[in-house]
Write a protein that binds this DNA or RNA. Structure first.
Length: 800
RNA sequence: GCCCCGGUGGCGAAAUUGGUAGACGCACAGGACUUAAAAUCCUGAGUCUCGAGCAAUCGGACGUGCCGGUUCAAGUCCGGCCCGGGGCACCA
């Protein structure tokens, strides 16, 4: 008989709630070590919770429950990243206020999360669109502003005409919007920017402090994109002006045969004077063409384009004149927007030189041009004969000595585009006064509430909906409020701090409380947030650290990513493919415990794996079998206190060890398989003993908490199994004295012997020789050599 | 192009880090129980137009994407490829 999961799930969810079983303890009233287990909070979409959420929240919940049983004071909260585009798009279509649809979606998420039996500390729930929350998002913005890290700038931005908003670099994938896949073009607009570039070096260096997957760290390193080199000044012929280039290869300075300025370079603007009248028209023409190109077109360009400007630069070492070109393969917003071209040793410069028939000069000995490897310098004056690395060092020294440039470091990371011309986001706590002064509003005026507007649609020119509420825009002394809103990633960049002290009206978080709980000990979420959310959060944490408001400079000590759960067909779940699995219907049928345990048993948590519905039956059988081992047909407990057979007792201790090790390593699938093996042996031994069933139920509890509580209660366990101390093992019982080891003859497996784990070589060989298949393989000859590792392997070598 | 992951039965996957490859589960087959079915319990099973035997069974060869290497011993280490997934990409 199967247990009644509907009744049991509801019963224990109510009891946990009533007893506040999962409430984190007050740090001032406990001596327990802390453990902060966090999920990336969901965007509460109207579609409800999907299996991807379960793949993330279930492992975190298993770890939280395990850590509680292990004596940790666990903080395991949940909340909602509730500002964002979908609710706003829906509002534009229907006129329903996004707050209404968002609240409805949150209710749906909350109820689904509760029916899964997740051990969240519910009273700590946060929602980024709640004024009590975004008050502090605005407060943190004022801190950024005060520290000179928030500024407005006319910048070429990623403008998405379909969404009528600008997007951050991280939100643009291959020239299209991350959300919706609409085309994105580059247009200049005045925007709020956050100076994340000031933190580039620390964001890079501090990756060494955290326990993240190497590939995630590597992706952040790539995104930050550090390059070391030098800025070098080149003079301009017939002018007193100079211009600066950035290069990582000053060793190739003598290989320069032309210079390239990006089309947007200030020296090329009308009236700057370096472009002679004879070339003005063609430069103008080229600039116009380049600016008309979208980011996508620029990237898709197969051939290099450019024009000669008519001007010449002067080589800082040998005074030779070098033609200056302009081309759009040089980007205005990286380095200085100008380069020295060394076609002999750079593939892009080589391609450009080939296209326009420019000189290509070798300065490093080696393979075919363009040669980017190492070798000895040639045709390079004082660098001749040096190896490339030595030449690089020497060249930088010489540049600095002659004061024609300085060593320099460049990052690919750009400042964070922080404003959106949208409605459903945090208003900026900023006012512009007639004098032109820009000021943040006083802290006691926070939160700056999001005003009501008649129409949520942004204007085609990019003016934000908030501008329509003129009453709201007016501020004292003729000031006008900023009408842009913050991007979705604002609230998510610090919400993990709010959980430490969620109801504080005087501070975003009490200093001592964050000092106790932070950093997050385990953070689980999708790998797609690698360069967005995870980088922004690290940045804000560091800013708050520098402001003395938090005590740690990294927010997430350990990070894990859940794999993608694919459809039963092995393809990514999508509505168009029709392979989307709805977790609600699965839970209805099998119960929360089976669903949770199944998700954990599917495979390694970080692997992408298909959802195979028929596999659920195996997990369901396992929990039913556990139930039947302890409970009779009429629902009474049949557990007794009989002593365990020796073998079963040993297996119990081995299992306690293995499950603990596996949980520490987040190897949930193998932990469950160990529990299955133990239960199978319980059946074979026909045991109903509490001595094995109670610890087994305790170990099952993190995965299947409802049925575990019910069994624990029936067997007379004290209190909640969720809070019962984790079972201990006797290490003496976890090792077998007699083991079966493989016997090989000439390296091939030929049999197995049962032997004392410390048996001597003589004993092992004797035992092996009595095995017929071993004798057979040896063909009657003696062993010429014996390799024996006690308890592991015996290999007999026979010369043919 | 560069940088990461990954590739093991019909399927999801294990494998103490070089030591009996395929634990556990699904699906499958056989048996027990049953009037029958479901459920349950027990048992079997990598592949082979390989060999012996009436048979249960016993033995052999092959086997972790491909080729080569190191080693007594390779899924695991090394070199060279192929395939799948992800990230970066005109960043000087």
């Amino acid at each position: 008989m199967a247990y009644d999961h509907k009744q049991i799930d509801a019963k224990w969810q109510q009891r946990w709630e009533k007893a506040q079983t999962f409430k984190a303890e007050d740090p001032r009233k406990t001596t327990k070590p802390k453990y902060y287990a966090l999920d990336m909070f969901p965007y509460p979409s109207g579609y409800g919770l999907h299996v991807g959420h379960l793949a993330s929240y279930t492992p975190t919940d298993v770890v939280s429950r395990y850590k509680r049983a292990r004596g940790f004071n666990v903080l395991h909260p949940m909340g909602y990243d509730s500002f964002g585009l979908p609710a706003e798009q829906f509002a534009i279509q229907t006129g329903i206020h996004p707050a209404v649809t968002t609240e409805k979606a949150i209710e749906s998420f909350r109820s689904t999360l509760k029916t899964m039996g997740y051990s969240f500390d519910w009273p700590r729930e946060v929602s980024t669109c709640d004024p009590k929350f975004y008050k502090w998002t605005q407060f943190i913005f004022t801190k950024l502003f005060e520290r000179g890290l928030a500024y407005q700038k006319e910048v070429p931005v990623n403008w998405c005409p379909a969404l009528r908003t600008v997007l951050a670099n991280e939100e643009v994938i291959d020239g299209k919007s991350e959300r919706g896949g609409h085309p994105v073009i580059r247009v200049p607009m005045k925007q709020w920017m956050l100076k994340i570039t000031d933190y580039a070096e620390r964001l890079l260096a501090d990756l060494d402090k955290v326990d993240w997957l190497e590939r995630t760290k590597e992706a952040q390193r790539n995104w930050i994109g550090k390059s070391e080199g030098a800025n070098v000044f080149f003079g301009i012929q017939g002018s007193t002006e100079k211009f600066e280039i950035f290069t990582t290869r000053p060793d190739t300075l003598f290989g320069v045969t032309f210079m390239v300025l990006s089309p947007e370079h200030p020296l090329l603007t009308k009236g700057s004077g370096i472009v002679p009248a004879s070339h003005r028209a063609s430069v103008d023409d080229y600039q116009a063409k380049a600016s008309a190109k979208s980011e996508v077109d620029r990237k898709a360009a197969t051939e290099k384009t450019g024009v000669f400007t008519g001007a010449y630069a002067i080589h800082p070492f040998n005074g030779k004149s070098i033609p200056i070109w302009t081309a759009d393969y040089v980007l205005v917003d990286y380095g200085t927007g100008a380069i020295m071209a060394v076609p002999g040793h750079d593939e892009r410069d080589y391609e450009f030189a080939q296209t326009f028939g420019l000189e290509i000069k070798r300065v490093i000995d080696g393979g075919d041009l363009p040669f980017t490897g190492e070798g000895k310098l040639v045709n390079s004056d004082f660098l001749d004969g040096l190896d490339q690395p030595a030449a690089l060092k020497r060249a930088i020294e010489e540049v600095e000595k002659r004061k024609i440039g300085t060593r320099n470091i460049q990052y690919k990371l750009r400042d964070w585009l922080f404003s959106r011309q949208r409605y459903w986001g945090e208003p900026f706590p900023v006012v512009r006064f007639p004098s032109g002064d820009l000021k943040t509003v006083p802290v006691n005026e926070l939160p700056v509430l999001l005003p009501e507007v008649a129409d949520y649609q942004p204007s085609e020119k990019g003016e934000a909906p908030l501008a329509r509420n003129q009453d709201w825009v007016q501020y004292a002394d003729g000031g006008r409020r900023e009408t842009d809103t913050m991007p979705g990633s604002a609230g998510s960049s610090w919400y993990f701090l709010r959980y430490c002290d969620p109801h504080n009206d005087d501070a975003f978080c009490d200093f001592d409380l964050q000092k106790y709980w932070m950093p997050v000990d385990l953070y689980v979420g999708g790998a797609e947030h690698t360069v967005g959310h995870l980088l922004y959060s690290r940045f804000w944490q560091k800013v708050l650290f520098d402001a003395g408001l938090v005590s740690h400079d990294e927010p997430f000590q350990k990070l894990a990513h859940q794999g993608v759960i694919l459809g039963p067909d092995g393809e990514r779940m999508s509505k168009s493919r029709g392979n989307v699995v709805n977790p609600d219907s699965v839970r209805e049928q099998y119960g929360a415990d089976v669903l949770r345990a199944y998700v954990m048993f599917l495979g390694p948590m970080d692997a992408d794996k298909p959802w195979q519905e028929n596999g659920i039956g195996g997990v369901q059988r396992f929990l039913d079998r556990l139930w039947r081992a302890a409970v009779s047909e009429d629902g009474a407990s049949i557990a007794d206190s009989a002593a365990l057979p020796e073998e079963l007792n040993k297996l119990l201790h081995k299992t306690i060890k293995k499950v603990g090790d596996d949980l520490d390593a987040m190897a949930f699938n193998t932990a469950i398989s160990a529990l299955m093996i133990l239960l199978n042996e319980v059946y074979k031994a026909s045991s109903h003993s509490k001595l094995v069933l109670m610890p087994l139920v305790q170990m099952v509890a993190p995965f299947a908490p409802h049925v575990a509580e019910e069994l624990w209660e029936k067997m007379g366990g004290e209190g909640f199994v969720a809070l019962a101390p984790w079972p201990k093992f006797d290490s003496a019982l976890t090792v077998d004295s007699v083991v079966s080891i493989g016997v090989q003859v000439n390296g091939k497996s030929r049999g197995v012997i049962e032997i004392d784990k410390d048996a001597s070589e003589e004993a092992a060989v004797a035992a092996a020789l009595s095995v017929p298949s071993v004798q057979n393989a040896m063909g009657g000859k003696p062993a010429d050599k014996v390799i024996y590792k006690a308890g592991r392997i015996l290999n007999l070598i026979v010369k043919s």
